[in-house]
């Protein structure tokens, strides 16, 4: 029974990873692409790791998978923030359908540091 649940969760996680990749190809600019890359890939990876933990049970491998999940949850949004901020400071523009940019007003007075 555990096997079926584990495999099902791994498959759902893979599906989310695929959605993330599709988003990476289809979305217009770096910021929207980061959205797809961080959200879908984080959840997809977490679900794969949960699935592995269920498949193997609570032994060395399973516990490692859960610890890895915690690390992915901490590092992936941080990396996304660093990339987005770096891209903005570097001057990458927001693409066409963008409606509002409140961040731009902070850039003029403090300069590009």
């Amino acid at each position: 029974m555990n096997e079926y649940i584990g495999v099902a969760i791994v498959i759902v996680g893979l599906a989310f990873d695929v959605f993330g990749c599709v988003g990476l190809v289809r979305l217009p600019d770096i910021y929207t692409r980061l959205q797809a890359a961080t959200k879908c890939v984080t959840l997809g990876t977490c679900m794969i790791l949960i699935g592995i933990a269920i498949l193997t049970g609570l032994n060395a491998t399973g516990v490692k998978a859960l610890v890895c999940m915690a690390f992915v949850l901490i590092t992936s949004p941080t990396a996304a923030h660093a990339i987005a901020r770096g891209a903005y400071k570097f001057g990458v523009k927001l693409e066409e359908p963008t409606v509002v940019d409140r961040y731009a007003e902070t850039q003029t007075d403090e300069g590009r540091s």
Binding site: F19, L94, P97, V99, R102
Partner: peptide, 21 residues
């Protein structure tokens, strides 16, 4: 969040209104 992003990504017209608030 993931279902929302998956929906936006798979939708043929991609109904997005991105911006920084």
């Amino acid at each position: 969040a993931n279902l929302e992003v998956a929906y936006l990504v798979l939708h043929p017209d991609m109904p997005i209104r991105p911006g920084i608030v």
